[in-house]
Design a protein around this nucleic acid. Sequence first.
DNA 1: GGGACCTGATTACACGTGTAATCGACAGGG
DNA 2: CCCTGTCGATTACACGTGTAATCAGGTCCC
Lengths: 121, 121
Amino acid sequence: MERIAEGEYAVMEVLWDEAPLTAADVAARVPEDRGWSLATVKTMLSRLLAKGVLTHEEEGRRYLYRPAIRREDYVAEESGRLIDRMFGGRVTPLVAQLAARDKLTPADIAEIEALLKALKS
Amino acid sequence: MERIAEGEYAVMEVLWDEAPLTAADVAARVPEDRGWSLATVKTMLSRLLAKGVLTHEEEGRRYLYRPAIRREDYVAEESGRLIDRMFGGRVTPLVAQLAARDKLTPADIAEIEALLKALKS
DNA sequence: GGGACCTGATTACACGTGTAATCGACAGGG
DNA sequence: CCCTGTCGATTACACGTGTAATCAGGTCCC
């Protein structure tokens, strides 16, 4: 699966959230703070099409875009990449790292524990 | 803190492992499969210096390079970035994601549980 | 039916990155 | 003292990415 650049990812998120959409619709839904012009969004869409992570079907004179890959799949792959790169493929150090950085609230801890318990059964 | 590119990261790893080192030493320690020439490693070192994540001191006519940032700090930041981007800043979905992808072995689960228990006390 | 408007396609351009080659300076061996 | 090797510095160049502008073609209003 092709890598998706940071900016492109923002476009994918829009389409994962709601699809299919026209280019204009996507542009309208991209987070305000990106400050992107419609032209920029169109460039992103073309590149994502070229990467094969989007498909399009013609609707009259326009295209309707929709994701060609599942969000969970991409996220899993990208997470795996980071883990490989920074933690030698081991997940525990990542959790440890997050814990040490106070990124885990007590609620997080409880939630993860519940999750793990469910996994074991 | 400046971003470190993927290739540059490989150089940082060498220096996090052992420092200070000369450019030639770093080149010798970079993983074989990168297939980098000494020139390439020197470019990386310059760029890392420019980014302020390395320091150098002169040793005769050469430099001795050493990290200017701690590995844990960088890793924490980079992990945080991924989590923000893909999981909206919440850690639990990341763990859930990894679990769902069978990235967690029973040993991992036990280890994380122990870790969390320690955190609570 | 002629201009305004909207579409995707094509082109543009600067910056980061991967991957070096080359250069000017100097050190050390003969 | 000169040659050869070695250093960091400078330059090179292609590709991905962020961020568009422009263009060619069709639609729709007047």
